[in-house]
Each structure stands twice: as C-alpha cells, then as structure tokens.
Write a protein that binds this DNA or RNA. Structure first.
Lengths: 342, 342
DNA sequence: TTGAAAGCGCTACCAG
DNA sequence: CTGGTAGCGCTTTCAA
C-alpha cells in the first residue's frame, strides 16, 4: 500500500537503480546528475515514500536494532537503565526492542528466540539464570551480548557489567564513620529465601560494610545488622526496629534501600531520636523523593543511566568489531550527601 | 552465517518448499508425511535454525511489531504504561519498540519516520504536540495509532485514551468530605508556564475539586488552593505552607502529587498538626512508598498498567480490523484509602 | 550518467 | 504428498 521505490522511480521517469542512488546519495560517489536527484527527491516527497527497512536489511544485513531484556520495566532501576540504553542507541542510529522476562525462564527463552529471529544486532540482558541453555542460542547466532547484574560462575565467556556492590556499602559506612559515628548499624532485607544472585549482592555489601568498619577502626558485630523486608505489617516492623534501636543504640545507620529508612521512621520518632543530631542515616538508591524528605535523606547513587549508556556503547563496539566479546566492568556508585548525615 | 531454510532443506534431503511447510505445519492443512516433518524438524534443531523474520515479513506483510513513544521511560508513570503495553503485546505475539521523545518535536519526527520505515503494525504515542505535521505520516502510511494524555482540539480523527482527570480530583475530595472535612484544601503545582496539555489536566482537576465541594454542600474558595512545585528550596516551601495552613486552617487536603505531601510534612510537623486527627490528607499517584509512610498515605491510583494493556488491546483490534480508527476512552481512577484520611 | 538483472530468505501458487 | 518458481522491496554489480 505505501509507496515503494519503483513508484518513486516511475513518477520521476527513471529506473529503480538510479532512484535508489539518488536517494542514498552519499557525497556523490556515484555521479548522479543534480537534476535527476532533485526530480527523484521531489517524487519521493510527493508520494510520502519511506524506504522499507526489512527489505533493506535483507540486502545489507544490518537491522540497527538491539534488544533489552530485564525482569520488568515497571521499576525505576531497570527503567533508568533502559533510558540510558535507549539514549545511547538513538545516538548511534539503533532502536531498542524491550522485553520483560518477569524472571521467568520460559518467557525469556521465547523472547530470545524472537529476537534472534528478528536478527537483532545485539542484546543487553539481565539473565534470569546465567546457566540457562537458551543463552547458547545467542552465542550460536553470533549475537553480541552484554550481561548485567546476574553474576555467577559461568563457563561461558561473556561481557559483563554491573555496579560495584562492595563499594556501595563501604562508601556510605565510611562516610558515616568520617562524620563521627562509632556504632554504625546496617539495615538489610530479610535474608530467608533470597535468590542466589541477590544473596551474592547482599554478601558483597556486608563485605563492604565490614571493610569500612575495619578501615575506621571499628568493630563488626553481627547483631548490628537489622533485617527489614517489604512484607511485614507496619506494626510489626515498628516493634522490631524499636527493639533494635533500644538494644543496639546505633549512632549511624546505612539502609540498603531508601525505603527501609521510611519504614523505620515511625520507631525513630517514637523513641524521640532526631536525625541527624542523635542518629545519622544514609539510604541507598537515591530515590527521587530523597531530597524532599525532612530532613533530606543522604543516599548512595547508582549511575543507572550511565550504566545503560555504557552497555550500549560497549555493544556498539562489539557490533562494529572494535570491542572483544568478553570482559568485566564494575561501575562505582557515588554518594549524595544530604542533611540526614550532616 | 546462521542456518537458513535452504540449509535445513538440504540436510533433510528435501526441497525448501516442503521444509517450510513442515516447519510451519498448521494442523496439517497441507498434508506432509509425518516422517518428513520429523526429519525436517530434526535438521532444523541440529542446525539451530531460526527463521528470518525480516524476509518472512517481506512475504507475509506483518511484522508483529508495535511502537511506543513517550517522553521518557525513566519515570514510573510511563514505565508502568509501557509494562502494560508490553504484557498485552507479548500475549498477542507482538514485540514493542520503545522510543523516548523527551518531548522534542524533532526527535519525535525522526522516531516516527524510523518506525514507519520498519513497517510497524501499530503505534501507541503520547504526542508532544498533537498538531505536529509528522503525525500525518502515520495516517498516510495507515499505521493504526492510539494516542494518550495529550488531549487537545484536533481536526484529525484518532483513537484517544486517557484517565478521567476530573474524576481524579472529585473522588478524593468527595472522600474527604465524607470523612467529615468541611474545609478542604487543594495542593497543586505552580501554575506559571505550564505546557498547554498539563494546564488542561490541571483545569480538569480543579473542576473535579469544585464539583466534589458542591456535591458536599461546601464552598469553593480560590485561596484554598495552594501552589507547590518541584523547585523551590525546602525552606521556602515550608514557609509558604506554614503561612497557608495558618491562614486557611484546612481540615483536609488533596495533594495532586504524593510528593507535594512529602514536601509539606515539615510545616505540618512544626505546627503540631497530626495526620489524620487534625488534618486528613489524600495524595495522588499512589507512589510505591505510600504504604510505608507513617501514617500510610491515602492516594488516588491511576491504573497505568491497565491503561497500557487496554491501549495495546485496542491497537490489536485496529490492526486486525475489528476496531475502528477513532474514538475516545476515559479510564476512571480509584482510591487507595489508608490511615492518613481515616 | 544511467539501467538491467541478480539475489537477500522466505512463502505460496501451481504443477507434478 | 512433493518441488519448481515467482516475487515481497531493496541494493549493488556489471554493462551500456
């Protein structure tokens, strides 16, 4: 239905060949007379001609299409990464096909197959299970791939990028120590039934916490770690936190998620503990509401968009052949210091 | 490089034609001997054959690809919609190409052209400017299109879906009135220099606010409307809010964004106003932290994923020809009533 | 400076 | 039941 090259050619009274050259005229390598070029371009405009990428690809072999597979997009973490990928992709003339795996192996497999069928030029993926068989399909079809977050021992050589998880805890705890805290607590998620990859991250963070304490000459105590989850009623959480605050009497806290601090607020208020005078707090993820809390919450910031951008740049390099297919890059987080840890 | 149909056919010792039918065997319409089917399938598996969508499309004329264009994806509002679209798309065997326009006309134009070039089957778009010329391209290429949010007078017939903005204010204000509030304030963004489409939404909300007041037999007073923005220092905002609270003495508040309530918290605390005893509050957007605030914040919830899903379903219908190309659908928001308005 | 024709990988018509 | 062949819309080689 839409106009095709032959229509344009006919209207311009010229052959397909010449029309094609006239339109894709790259610096006049092929000497087409200026007059012809004008005529063809005019005809194209008149017909609203837009070349068909699919058939173009069939000849040229490049789709200018990459995929991004993550658990879901409805999550500011992945969404920010997606944004970074998309921005970088656009700059290089690529478009991004997004798919949510919901961490479901079968769904992920279907997606990978579809993407391969579309002959995407590259893929950024947060694999559900790095050992899954369907990832071989990518390798077999020579799809340049960048993986992130799911670190695990793997026999496969691949390109891996993520945040430096150890540093993400060391940094804020060192910051609290430098502010004079001597008894710093760590607030984490409940540890039962954590998926493997998450517990790898958690371990790294606890490691960073230990390291910062050691560097500051402070002692690590396992019962300074408080477990809070998403679940658990308001009441239950408040009680747990109160007990913890009363028995441990921390003067500093690093919460592994900003939200955990929000959930502690109640208990803090009830015990009359003022932030930051009585207890200094740093959260993690730099949620968009941090600056608006009172006092504004200091938080660890992961450069998510930056990671997305870097992954796309890396992918672009792999596609173009200027970057190898394996290697590991860790991106360090930074700290947004605000009132809550002053 | 990857195996193609002819490779499979050769390995199975059979022609391309038969191989094709063997693989796409739709309920044996075309009678291929079971033995042949087996052989072909085995060959395909052995070679890791994945059909090339681009060439398939060239023959069949359906990409099973739709586009989604929004200002950005790094925003929980659009991300949720994207999630809904993606979920519904996957169900129907479609994939989603995402692009951020950053509300930049030129960028949007480029994207639309690329999407048309890819011969997407349909598009969901939040147009930057509904009057922009490049939207004609979609019409000209018969791309089924669903628009959302940017409502404006338009000569173009199109499919439009969005939330019921009037209701999004009427509902919470009516709720507050039912809880006994007699002097309900409205907290909105600063109104200077709002883009047209946003001020259309704001007007609708003020309208809803008025309507709820009238229904409850309460008087509308323009100075019960408090303007807060994203910008403005903590201090400045607190001062403004304190002045407002002191002079207007509201016993109920509807904040047009959850965040505005967060920004008011400081002033509320300083004046010793307890929520919900002294003043009841309802926010808007049902941000993920609402249940975790103390007290948990009541909030208007927009069914964003649902909207995304519906738009995709609608699009699917348009593509299949079972739905017309125009019409307008409003989705009503609901209320998550929590402690803050008890 | 231009054009005829081959062919990218696939499907589907028609003939065996 | 099976296979030759045309052609989807484009690029590109080669010849004029």
């Amino acid at each position: 239905m839409p106009a095709k090259l032959s229509d344009v050619a006919r209207l311009a009274g010229i052959s397909k060949t010449t029309a094609s050259f006239a339109l894709n005229d790259e610096g006049g390598t092929r000497g087409i007379s200026p007059d012809t070029v004008m005529r063809v371009k005019a005809a194209a405009r008149q017909l609203g001609y837009v070349p068909n990428q699919a058939s173009r690809f069939l000849r040229k072999g490049r789709q200018h299409l990459v995929g991004f597979l993550a658990p879901n997009i409805n999550d500011s973490f992945y969404a920010s990464i997606a944004q970074g990928i998309e921005t970088a992709a656009e700059k290089h003339g690529y478009q991004v096909l997004f798919g949510s795996t919901f961490s479901n192996i079968e769904r992920e497999r279907r997606y990978i197959e579809s993407l391969v069928a579309r002959r995407i030029d590259g893929l950024v993926i947060l694999p559900t299970d790095i050992k899954a068989h369907h990832l071989d399909l990518l390798h077999h079809h020579h799809v340049p791939t960048v993986m992130f977050r799911r670190r695990a021992v793997s026999r496969r050589k691949c390109k891996f990028m993520t945040f430096d998880d150890v540093e993400s805890a060391r940094l804020p705890v060192a910051h609290l120590a430098a502010r004079g805290c001597r008894n710093i607590g760590l607030v984490v998620e409940t540890q039962l039934a954590l998926p493997e990859w998450l517990s790898i991250i958690l371990d790294a963070r606890i490691d960073g916490y230990r390291r910062a304490l050691r560097d500051a000459g402070l002692r690590f105590r396992r019962d300074n770690i408080l477990e809070i989850g998403y679940s658990g009623s308001e009441k239950h959480v408040t009680a747990t936190v109160e007990k913890y605050l009363n028995s441990r009497k921390p003067d500093g806290l690093f919460a592994i998620e900003d939200l955990y601090y929000l959930r502690m607020k109640n208990a803090l208020d009830r015990l009359g503990l003022r932030v930051p005078q009585d207890i200094k707090v740093v959260g993690c993820d730099n949620s968009y509401y941090c600056p608006y809390l009172s006092p504004p919450l200091s938080s660890v910031v992961f450069p998510q968009e930056e990671l997305g951008r870097m992954m796309m740049e890396e992918l672009e390099g792999m596609i173009g052949g200027s970057r190898g297919p394996s290697g590991e890059i860790l991106l360090p987080p930074t700290l947004a210091a605000r009132q809550s840890s002053k």
